[in-house]
Design a protein around this nucleic acid. Structure first.
Lengths: 136, 136
DNA sequence: TCTTGCCTTAAAGTATACTTGAAGTATTAT
DNA sequence: ATAATACTTCAAGTATACTTTAAGGCAAGA
């Protein structure tokens, strides 16, 4: 089983060392070992944790929910319903977010086409496309 | 051309009145009219603005970029390249966000299946599924 | 007319998620 | 050995995006 220094994890996950200390302070990272000179040692357990944190973060799960999640996970038998609720609700949220982003992407793509149309008109000294077409 | 009170816009866009005042303070809403007793009056121009703000917000564009966008839009002839850059980069960001969310959704769906498997095992008093399967 | 409730400004406060600073100890390269 | 860099704790600071408070003016129903 491998071990890692704070700097190694920092590079692996592209987070600052201070963020790793912060995650430990607030209970997202637990059971962090120490060298005889008090420096943190992480293990593959922490790699797995940080993969989960990264996934949760990328999908907009707030830290408070992550704290709940890892607390539930530490005592899964007694919190299985709570953890299922948490991940199921988060799954639903992600699907809604994706749908919303896809809808809004269409609007942004429209804006990109619209302003490129304006630029062409400016370059050719031609009249601008109608603004009526803009606010769809 | 219709006009709207702050309360009407607040309800239409599901934002607090204070947020509409804040958006005006920081330049996201401009040319807001007043009644003879100093109360704000909005027009369809502001409806269009708030649709754009809402779209940008839903797709994670920071307010500082929105400020740039509306400043460019107010003087489009001289800022057409800047506004095209802004919306094109934002389009790219949204696409990346959607892709990332779709990838991470697969992980969350895996967690949902995994914890439901645990729950079934608990309910049946059966042994738990292997943790090896968990960290994919 | 009174009361309730919405409007106004300006400044201060809040929530979330870190980040930085200070002071001190430890490690690494020359 | 010495200098530069990295580690430690703990508290305070920062960034973003609002939200609330205070103190007062305006408005609509009983």
């Amino acid at each position: 089983m491998s071990t890692y220094t704070i700097k190694e994890l920092s590079k692996l996950f592209d987070v600052q060392s201070s963020t790793l200390r912060y995650y430990e302070d607030i209970g997202l990272l637990t059971n962090v070992g120490r060298t005889d000179t008090n420096q943190r040692i992480y293990t593959d357990e922490h790699i797995a944790r940080l993969n989960a944190i990264s996934c949760f973060k990328n999908t907009g799960l707030p830290i408070s929910k992550m704290q709940d999640f890892f607390k539930y996970e530490a005592n899964l038998e007694n919190n299985i319903d709570e953890i299922i609720d948490l991940v199921t609700e988060h799954e639903k949220n992600i699907k809604e977010q994706i749908k919303k982003m896809q809808d809004e992407l269409a609007h942004i793509e429209h804006k990109v086409r619209f302003y490129n149309g304006i630029k062409e008109a400016i370059d050719k000294n031609a009249p601008w496309p109608y603004w009526d077409d803009y606010n769809i």
